[in-house]
Simulated scan of single mutants.
Amino acid sequence: MQQLSIRPVTVLSKTPAVAKPDNRETIEAGLQAHDKSLFIKDGWIRDPYIVTSPEGEYYLTGTTPLNDEDWVNTDPYNLGLGDYSCVGWKAHIWKSKDLIDWQPVENAFSLKDGIWAKTHPESFEETDPSKWLLWAPEIHWTGDRWALVHTSPFPHSGANLSLSNGAEPVGPWENPMGEKIARRHDPSLFNDDDGSWWLIWGATQIAKLKPDFSGFEGEPIKIGPSGDTKNMGHEGCLIMKIDGKYVLFGTGWSTGLMRRGTYNLYYAVADKITGPYSERKFVGRFLGHGTPFKTKDGNWWCTAFYNGNVPPLEKEGIENENLIFTAASINQRGTTIVPLDVFTDDDGELIIRAKVSEYATPGPDEAQKFDE
């Protein structure tokens, strides 16, 4: 195996082999017990996103290579960043009935389906396809079809908001916003109780969408947590409605410095989508750009993935390890899910926290101090 993304590894004689996912019995028992993390699917991925379809099937997508087989034996712990990024230009989607067996959704979405390939074809013609990048796709059920959002820096810097033509997240795709979608980092969608749809991007701006997704109903609104830490982080923001509260999730490095420490997930709570929001609270270590979701039995989980400058670390004793000097993770290369506690306490405060210690404990490298 080659070194990590052509970067020298000073503490290892060779890159460790890629781990295999947990077996069926382990995942089935773990889903029922809801008491430990589960490695459910292999394959290089960032920003894994899981959502349930109206029929009760789970869909998984995320930032992926065009063909993972090109990387698993040569650069398995590729950062997905810089000149040696393995990231491709297609949104691969898989579906599963049990979070164990995953089937690919063929010909789901690619940059060629988005608005920019149609309005700026010269960008695509003049840029080698190996440099095209599709980042952080999500899919959202709108009632009769799927909406897909993602961001892309190359070959044309811009996001896409695309609609499928039916009940499967496949083309042909429509792009109702046209170029008005513009450049928006890590876009996400939120459907409020009144039926309105909102676009979320950056860290954090939101804007209400027209009912037909053809544009914005108003100007973007800046939202974020209150208190000492006024930023959610720098990316991976999304909004959910839980127990009657608007919950803004965001991602940042524990140290507040890029690629130093651990990639973490945080949240803030409000009574209105526009805020004001609470102080920033801690969901979990190593859960950055993860997606909280419910399984069919009502339990909450969060997706997690490998994001580090060194291969995955051992879990034992990680709570006390100060990882300030580099980007590090305990997640294996692939998709992991981590159990969450989600409840409203006796004081009316919404609590969202990883259930297992290695994720639930802020590390010594955590810059923010949380009231426990």
Rank of each mutant, 00 (worst) to 15 (best):
W173M: 06
P137H: 01
V11A: 11
G298Y: 03
L313A: 09
Q103T: 15
E321Q: 02
E217D: 14
I181G: 13
I351T: 02
R280Y: 02
Q2P: 15
G218E: 12
D47T: 06
S329A: 14
V338S: 05
D35R: 08
F370K: 08
S278Q: 06
A19W: 00
L265F: 05
I6P: 07
T303I: 09
F305I: 08
G56T: 07
T61M: 15
S226I: 12
G298H: 10
P339T: 10
P21T: 14
T274Y: 07
G308A: 12
Q32E: 09
K369Q: 13
R285M: 07
F282T: 01
P311Q: 03
T127C: 15
T361H: 12
R183L: 14
G171T: 04
Y49V: 09
P76I: 02
T119P: 14
L31W: 05
G233T: 04
E138F: 00
L161P: 07
R24Q: 12
E372C: 11
N331F: 10
S357H: 01
E314A: 11
L4S: 08
T326N: 07
V342E: 00
Y267T: 08
W201V: 06
G233E: 09
F249K: 14
L287H: 05
V72E: 10
I318F: 10
S96M: 03
G178D: 08
W135V: 04
L209G: 09
W301S: 10
G224R: 04
L31G: 03
T127E: 11
I351S: 11
N309W: 14
R285H: 06
R280M: 03
S329Q: 04
F293P: 08
S130I: 12
G215H: 05
E126N: 14
W300M: 01
D113M: 05
S254T: 05
W197Y: 04
T344L: 12
T274I: 07
E372W: 14
P311M: 10
K294D: 11
I221T: 11
I40L: 12
E57G: 11
P292F: 13
K112I: 15
L248V: 10
Y58S: 09
G82A: 11
G261A: 12
E366A: 05
E217V: 12
A19D: 03
A167E: 14
G250Y: 01
G166D: 01
D70A: 13
D128F: 09
S130D: 08
T204F: 04
I181F: 15
D192S: 06
L81Y: 13
Q3I: 15
G334Q: 02
S164T: 03
W94V: 09
S37Y: 01
G261L: 06
L60M: 04
D345R: 03
K208M: 09
W201R: 03
T10Y: 13
F190Q: 05
Y277A: 01
F124R: 04
R184K: 15
S13K: 09
L265T: 02
G236F: 04
K208L: 06
P176E: 00
M258L: 14
I239E: 00
G166I: 05
F109C: 01
K281T: 04
P8T: 09
G43Q: 08
H120S: 15
A354T: 04
T262W: 04
F282Q: 00
D113Y: 09
E279N: 02
T295L: 06
S85T: 09
